[in-house]
Computed example of a mutant assay.
Amino acid sequence: MTGYVDIAASAAGAGLDIFGGFHPEPGDGAPDGTGTLLLLGPREPGFWAIVTAAPEWRDGAADPLDRWSVRVVGRLARDIGGHALFPFGGPPWHPFYPWAVRSGRAFASPVTLLVHDTAGLMVSYRGAIALPGRIDLPAPPGASPCESCAGRPCLAACPPRALTARGYDLPACHAFLDTAPGADCLSAGCLVRRACPVSQAYGRLPEQSAHHMRLFHR
C-alpha cells in the first residue's frame, strides 16, 4: 500500500496538504472497512492560483471550488485505492469537525471555531480519503496552538462581538457585514480568523477569503 509520504507528495502536487489523519474506531462515523482516514486542506501558499486556473473556475457553472475538489480529491483517492469523502453535497453528511479533532491536529479555539496546527483559524477541508488499510501516520502535535498564544487576539477581534467564547451570534455577524465597517471582512476575510497568529503565517490570500465571504453573506 502507498505510504503517507507518497500520498502527501501526490496531494502537494495537486495543491493540497494532509491536514491530519487517524485510524477510525467504531463510533467515529467513517465508512465501514476504513483503516485510515486522511483529511485534506489547501496547501498554502499557492492553492488559490491552482484553483482559479482550473477548468471548473472558467466554465461559468456553479460551485467551482466544490467541483474542483470532487475531481482532484476523487482522483487522488482512486490512485491509492481509497474512497473520497466531502464536507458538502450530502446527505449523507460526513462529520468533518469531529474527524478534525480526532486527528489530533485541530482543536476548539477560544472562539469555538476549529483551529489547526498549521492553518490556524483559516483551516478548511476540501475532502477526505478513506483507505481500507492502516498506514503509519506522523504523531500529531498533542497540544492546541492556543495554549501557547499569550494574547489570544481572536477573542477581541470581532467588532460586533459575534464570535466569542460564548459561541457564534450569526445574526449579529450578518448585520455587521451589511455596514460600512463590515466591508473589510467581506473583502479580506473574517477579522477573527485573520487575528490568529497561526493564520497569519499560513499564506491564504485575501481573494480566497473574499470568495468564501461572498458565498456566506449573499
Rank of each mutant, 00 (worst) to 15 (best):
A150I: 07
F216L: 14
A180R: 15
A143C: 11
L186S: 04
P171C: 09
I129D: 05
R204W: 03
R161P: 01
D169G: 01
C149A: 14
P159S: 09
L205P: 02
V192Y: 04
A210E: 12
C154F: 09
D136F: 02
C154P: 05
H211P: 01
A157M: 02
P140S: 09
P145G: 13
A188R: 15
C158E: 10
G142R: 09
P141R: 11
C196Q: 09
C196M: 07
G133F: 12
L191T: 06
S144A: 13
A128T: 11
G167V: 11
P181D: 00
P153S: 08
R166Q: 14
L177P: 01
L186H: 00
Y168K: 04
V192G: 01
Q200W: 07
L163K: 10
R194H: 07
S209I: 00
A157R: 08
L131S: 05
P141W: 12
A210T: 05
E207R: 13
P132W: 06
H212L: 12
G167Q: 10
F176P: 09
R134V: 14
R152P: 01
S199W: 13
H212E: 01
A130Q: 03
L215P: 03
P159H: 10
G142W: 03
A162M: 11
G133D: 15
L186K: 05
R166T: 10
D136I: 00
C190V: 00
D178Q: 14
R166F: 12
P171T: 00
G142T: 02
S144M: 12
T164G: 12
A139V: 14
C173I: 07
G151C: 00
P160I: 10
C190T: 04
G133W: 14
V198N: 11
A175N: 12
H174G: 08
I135L: 14
L186C: 05
V198S: 01
G167M: 06
H212Y: 15
A143S: 13
S209W: 05
R194Y: 04
L163T: 00
P153F: 03
A188T: 13
G151Y: 07
C185Q: 00
P181C: 09
Q208S: 09
A156D: 14
C196H: 11
P160E: 06
H211E: 08
G203W: 10
P159M: 10
P160Q: 07
L177G: 01
R166C: 00
P140Y: 05
I129V: 15
R161D: 10
H211A: 05
V192K: 06
I129W: 01
A183Y: 00
A201M: 06
A162R: 13
